[in-house]
Amino acid sequence: MAKTIMIVDDSPTMLMSLDGMLSKAGFAVNQAKSGEEALASLRGGARPSMVITDLNMGAMDGIELIRSVRKLPGYQFVPMLMLSTESQQAKRHEAKAAGATGWIVKPVDPAALLQVIRQLVPGA
């Protein structure tokens, strides 16, 4: 059964690009255009094997999303990655403190992304 990865980004281009990489690697992809949408989807019973979220988003940023997801019953342990750039190293620590598992550097290299997913999602 294909593992589902949830991707959260307010950039349609990034969503499309990530979706392309993940679908090609055989993952089912659950897209969300904002933190709010992601939370609604998770509350509604989406059970992704991993959540990948952008850092800079509109009302709710990636770190806040990660913090909120960790409070949702059933999602304390799900691996979560944050998309960040080289210049946002301080944010990575903040994200880890909020419950992130790790981060992916933009622009996203498909091989590196898949490697991280395989590293963090058993059976992927």
Binding site: T13, S17, T85, P107
Partner: peptide, 13 residues
């Protein structure tokens, strides 16, 4: 800042 940042991120593709 966010707009420019997002643009940078997407353009990297």
């Amino acid at each position: 800042f966010r707009a420019v940042h997002t643009l940078k991120g997407s353009s990297g593709l």
